[in-house]
Nucleic acid binder design. Sequence first.
DNA 1: AAGGTGACTGGCG
DNA 2: TCGCCAGCCACCT
Length: 121
Amino acid sequence: MTQENTPSARRGGMPTFYDAVYAFVGKVPAGRVVTYGQVALELGAPAAARAVGYALHSLRGDRNVPWWRVINASGAISLKGRGTNADLQRELLEEEGVPFNIAGHTDLHAYRWWPGQDGES
DNA sequence: AAGGTGACTGGCG
DNA sequence: TCGCCAGCCACCT
């Protein structure tokens, strides 16, 4: 533990791609979900979906950011047995009102959130 | 400074 | 319909 996990801390306060990811995820309201590719697209890097996932990975457990509201384009959780966090994410989403089917998929067409739709219709 | 990794995505068989 | 391969971006050592 040499320094903070926060990328901005390493940059001396300069905002980075990661901060943009955290900012976008932080705007996602409870009960809604977004995909890695979607976040990347909103950040201006439609092909940086992997970097988005890596950004959340850097959180390492920072619950200040609703990382659990970010799932893959398949509507499922990507952690896939990499750690207990996978089950945690599903449980958190179900608790917020996002159900998963037997296959572990959710209806993106119904729960995917987009900026500007903070719950208003 | 360069190489490798990874919580991704889309196309093919 | 499902599984596998290659490409892509940004961070870490």
